[in-house]
């Protein structure tokens, strides 16, 4: 399951992502590490990006980016400080 499949408001745990060294680096810098919890806040219309919250910080990820992030849905909000 990738991040694109997740509905707004749901919590996820990041499992893995692939997309080249620079791409992975970029996500790591922003605190998106495997095992990390995140919440999908909203999807932009017309195939636009999605907005997620990690570490109480909001990130906009383009669909191409979100499609490369493998996640699992989790029930409870985890403490992602």
């Amino acid at each position: 399951m990738d991040l694109l499949d997740i509905e707004s408001g749901k919590w996820v745990r990041i499992l893995a992502y692939q997309g080249g060294r620079r791409f992975e680096h970029r996500l790591r810098q922003l605190g998106l590490l495997p095992g990390q919890c995140a919440r999908v806040l909203r999807h932009a219309p017309f195939g636009g990006p999605l907005l997620i919250e990690v570490h109480q910080r909001q990130l906009a990820l383009g669909r191409g980016v979100a499609a490369r992030i493998e996640v699992e849905e989790i029930d409870a909000p985890c403490d992602s400080r």
């Binding site: 997309g19 922003l30 383009g62 669909r63």
Partner: peptide, 10 residues
């Protein structure tokens, strides 16, 4: 080649 897309902090 297309790039994966936007990664931007809000």
């Amino acid at each position: 080649e297309d790039t994966p897309g936007m990664i931007l902090e809000m």
